[in-house]
């Protein structure tokens, strides 16, 4: 049985422990919460490490859903993002290859060069297998801090 799938970036600023008085990621947070809310009450998470997993868990909790590890989940939440070298003020500074790399991800998550992804500080380990970022699936697409974020939701086919 197919289930809805969502993609969010592992942005630590989304965690309650790092809350500011003015939310620097308000728009991104709203997009993430709307995507996660569509995954139903039992959400399974696919993340590349503990810190993106923590972001996912906090979004699931904020959506009032339960984190599960079994196949009977009502939805799947995947954590990942593009390069963190998109601008001179980006965490990894500007890398001229970053824009093309992210444009490639924007077309397809198949055939990702994971070596280049590591050089560009992209979190792409969990992205292979996701459907393309087609119109209608993308809720958020931006690189406000020099890191390429997508929030997407693919409904069950």
């Amino acid at each position: 049985m197919s289930t809805p799938v969502a993609l969010v970036p592992g942005v630590l600023a989304l965690l309650p422990a790092y809350a500011s008085i003015e939310d620097p990621v308000a728009e991104l947070r709203a997009a993430c919460l709307s995507a996660v809310a569509a995954l139903g009450p039992r959400v399974r998470v696919r993340a590349s490490g503990p810190s993106p997993a923590r972001v996912a868990a906090s979004l699931v909790a904020a959506a009032g859903a339960e984190l599960v590890e079994d196949e009977a989940a009502s939805g799947l939440l995947v954590v990942g993002n593009g390069s963190a070298k998109r601008s001179e003020r980006a965490p990894g500074h500007l890398d001229p290859r970053a824009e093309d790399f992210d444009a490639g991800l924007r077309r397809t998550f198949a055939g990702i060069d994971q070596g280049l992804a590591a050089e560009l500080w992209a979190d792409t380990a969990c992205l292979p297998g996701l459907p393309p970022l087609a119109e209608g699936a993308v809720i958020y697409d931006g690189a406000p801090f020099g890191v390429q974020y997508w929030v997407a939701l693919w409904d069950a086919p």
């Binding site: 600023a13 790092y18 500011s20 008085i21 003015e22 963190a84 965490p91």
Partner: peptide
């Protein structure tokens, strides 16, 4: 006792 006004450095 007070969060920072707007912290994003290192948290992007």
């Amino acid at each position: 006792r007070r969060p920072p006004l707007r912290a994003i450095r290192g948290l992007q």
